[in-house]
Structure formats: C-alpha cells, structure tokens
C-alpha cells in the first residue's frame, strides 16, 4: 500500500513502513495515521524505515514514540532503521533514542524481533 509519501509492506510477520518523503509537520500526520491503522490491526511487529528521509521534526518522532508505547502494552514493538546523522540528532534531541530501538538496516531491525 502506498499513499505517495510512504509505503506499507509485509516482510514475513513484520510490517514495514517505508517513508519516502521528509517528515515535516504535514507528512508527519500521514505517518501517524498509518501507525494508528496498524495499531488497530493485529500487527505486533512494526519497523519504520527512515532511510530516504533527510528531515524529521518532533511531530514525526512523537508519532513513532506514541505508537511504540501503545503497541508495547500488548507485547509488540516499533523499531526504526536507516537514520541519517541529522535524523538521529532529532531522535537524540527529543530523547526518543532512549525509548525506541534504532537499527542501521531493515534486516538488522527484523532480526532483532
């Protein structure tokens, strides 16, 4: 499934959201909606692949943190991968690096489940 700014696909029992646009205030709401949809399904394992993202703000990071908190309540998790240095910096500035597991590649994030 794709809505232009992101693609949602299955990789065995893991659902991967691959974000293709920068995650400013506008696109961050798309990510939040996609994550909310997945939280409403039976999905337990979610990876947000940010490998194509050059910019993310606190709204985008907050959407990921919020989804991770909620899905953990039922035993699942949200992990992120592919962060460029300035994207990692935003995770560090918000403190999200200590809340969400970050992996270099999608394959290493999948292996970590």
């Amino acid at each position: 499934m794709s809505n232009g700014s992101m693609t949602v696909r299955e990789n065995s029992d893991v659902t991967v959201i691959e974000v293709q646009d920068d995650l400013g205030s506008y696109v961050a709401s798309d990510l939040r909606e996609n994550l909310e949809d997945l939280l409403g399904s039976k999905t337990q394992k979610i990876i947000v692949n940010l490998g194509s993202v050059q910019h993310i703000n606190s709204t985008g990071v907050g959407a990921i943190v919020g989804a991770a908190k909620r899905i953990r309540q039922r035993g699942g998790d949200v992990k992120v991968c592919g962060l460029a240095d300035n994207i990692k910096r935003t995770f560090d500035l918000t403190g999200a690096s200590s809340v969400v597991e970050i992996y270099e590649s999608e394959s290493s994030a999948i292996s970590a489940f």
Binding site: N57, S58, T59, V61, G62, A63, V65, G66, K69, T90, L93, T94, G95, A96, S97, S98, V99
Partner: peptide, 13 residues
C-alpha cells in the same frame, strides 16, 4: 517533558 512524551519537545529543540 520526558523522552517518552509524544509532544512538548519543540521549543527545547
């Protein structure tokens, strides 16, 4: 403000 809060980080950033 806390790392696991979804909002409230912007002005500090």
């Amino acid at each position: 403000r806390a790392p696991d809060r979804e909002r409230g980080h912007g002005i500090y950033m």
